[in-house]
């Protein structure tokens, strides 16, 4: 169990650290996009590579943030019933959700996405736009993002199981 706690803590820390770097892309891509508009208008400078870099960064932001967003409960729920659940019920729901919703999806996307990345990498596939970028970095982001998501889901399971255990062991004592 101790090992699992350690694992969960290091996953959380890793996603946090990745987030600390990735969030700067928000500022960078806004600056790039605004700068691109100015350069194009004022100096007739511009390229499709600059345009494509923007969406590469956008993709990096939301995919590489997937783990951290899950960790910080950033995904919205329909809380019609959810807010009435007890702490125990919430734990059970989050364990089942991570097991049944996130892990199968992530597994599928990682497996298939890596294959797609590999083809693009091996072929040296380029964007078909004039002066466009290599495709594989963008393709790689898909499995990478879902790996981070799947790891975080595992961490959430560990944390919720632990919480459930304490809740369950606390309950009879409270009665007594």
């Amino acid at each position: 169990m101790n090992f699992l706690f350690k694992l969960s803590r290091s996953i959380d820390a890793m996603n946090l650290r990745i987030g600390v770097c990735v969030k700067w892309l928000v500022l960078v891509m806004a600056a790039l996009s605004a700068g691109n508009a100015l350069l194009r208008k004022l100096f007739d400078i511009g390229s499709n590579a600059l345009l494509e870099t923007q969406w590469y960064m956008f993709a990096a932001v939301f995919l590489l943030y997937a783990g951290l967003t899950l960790c910080e409960q950033g995904h919205v729920r329909v809380d019609l019933f959810y807010r009435k659940y007890s702490e125990k019920q919430k734990c059970v729901l989050d364990i089942l959700g991570a097991l049944l919703c996130i892990l199968p999806l992530s597994g599928l996307v990682i497996y298939l996405g890596f294959d797609v990345f590999w083809t693009a990498f091996a072929d040296g596939e380029m964007s078909s736009n004039s002066g466009g970028l290599l495709i594989w970095p963008a393709r790689l982001l898909v499995p990478l993002g879902f790996i981070l998501l799947a790891l975080q889901a595992a961490s959430e399971i560990i944390k919720n199981v632990a919480k459930l255990k304490t809740l369950l062991s606390a309950a009879p004592q409270a009665k007594a």
Binding site: H75, V76, R77, V78, F81, L93, L96, G97, I102, L105
Partner: peptide, 9 residues
């Protein structure tokens, strides 16, 4: 309605 995050549900 169960209440797990919408995206994953």
């Amino acid at each position: 309605a169960i209440g797990y995050p919408v995206a994953f549900t």
